[in-house]
Design a protein around this nucleic acid. Structure first.
Lengths: 189, 189
DNA sequence: CATGGCTATTCATATTCATGACTAGCATGA
DNA sequence: TCATGCTAGTCATGAATATGAATAGCCATG
């Protein structure tokens, strides 16, 4: 019952097609949730059945027709209800962390490679998020924007995403460095 | 196929019972994964069937008997294999983020309250993790420990958990402040 | 001396999430 | 012009995760 609300939240500011949603939830922009296309289409039909979103067909001639969805009043009420519920704490759930937990028992080289890869990925995402934030706030400073802008929700979640990816990058680099140095020290003995 | 490896990684350094595992995976110590008791017991039986862990019964008179598990050579090999696979990127998946994404459309007071609650929770966890790190490194400095300590895997994941919770706390405070100030500015008009 | 909480675990079921396979037309580049 | 990739979606199935409910004796607190 959480993907529901993520979809609703994503549709608040703009009408989107299922396909556009999948792009947002894919790897790029989804700073607050992540889901597969099939889940999204399924959720959209369910949401429409429950009257929380409405879709309207848009006929296109050069490309397949599509359906654009927007949140209804009932949908907004549902989001409001959801917001009032106490959120359960969020946990990191990460393959890479599992591997690092086992660092003292598995091959160091492989681990270092994985950490480097993840670090690169994080760096790339930092760039994307930075760009997004810039676009959202335009020529205003962050302070200015957060004080007087109209749609700060997406900006705030983006900020969290950015901090998270920075954390990822820094930690990966640190861990890789530590492992590399230990490897070196061990080799020399 | 991920909980498997999380369990294996958790059992690497010490023999644990299912119950102890549930404690570790509950809310406290699980910096790299999180799971329900039932999942863990189920996974342990599967792991034992597959020969990746072995359990030995410990008879207790004042409390119920228990089974302590440790990783077998096959289990270690499986972890090694897993480590070599490319890890998929990790995403934040958080109810609270969804709510903040919708910040411009839902009740601000509720949101601020939730952010405050989460911040407190994060602060508490920071304390716990700090203590854990301190215990692990003993009287050595972090640098010292990471260079020459024997079991640095758990330490490294703990570091990531700590940074993550700090990120949570800081972001919650920031977001709450922003929302509070906007609320004030709006009220005065 | 009753109440609730902790150890220690199991069974069954429900919900959610992920994977693979498929359609079909248009556009773009080699 | 052949192959690849993008838009726009659907169907079916499988794996992972979460939830609810039980058992049963011990220990501490009021």
């Amino acid at each position: 019952m959480a993907l529901r609300h993520a979809v609703l939240a994503a549709l608040l500011d703009e009408e989107l097609s299922g396909y556009q949603l999948t792009k947002a939830f894919g790897l790029g922009v989804a700073n607050f949730w992540h889901a597969q296309p099939q889940q999204l289409y399924a959720e959209l039909t369910r949401l429409e059945q429950d009257g929380l979103v409405t879709g309207r067909e848009v006929i296109q001639d050069t490309r397949p027709n599509k359906r654009l969805f927007r949140v209804t009043d009932a949908g907004l009420a549902e989001l409001e209800r959801f917001t009032a519920l106490t959120a359960k704490p969020s946990f990191i759930r990460d393959d890479l962390m599992v591997k690092v937990q086992a660092a003292d028992h598995v091959d160091t080289g492989t681990l270092i490679a994985q950490l480097a890869e993840r670090s690169t990925f994080a760096e790339a995402k930092i760039g994307v998020l930075d760009g997004l934030l810039r676009t959202m706030r335009g020529d205003r400073t962050e302070e200015e924007f957060l004080r007087h802008g109209e749609r700060i929700g997406p900006y705030l979640t983006c900020l969290r995403g950015l901090a998270f990816e920075r954390g990822n990058r820094d930690w990966c680099e640190r861990a890789a460095t530590v492992l590399r140095e230990r490897q070196g020290a061990h080799d020399r003995q």
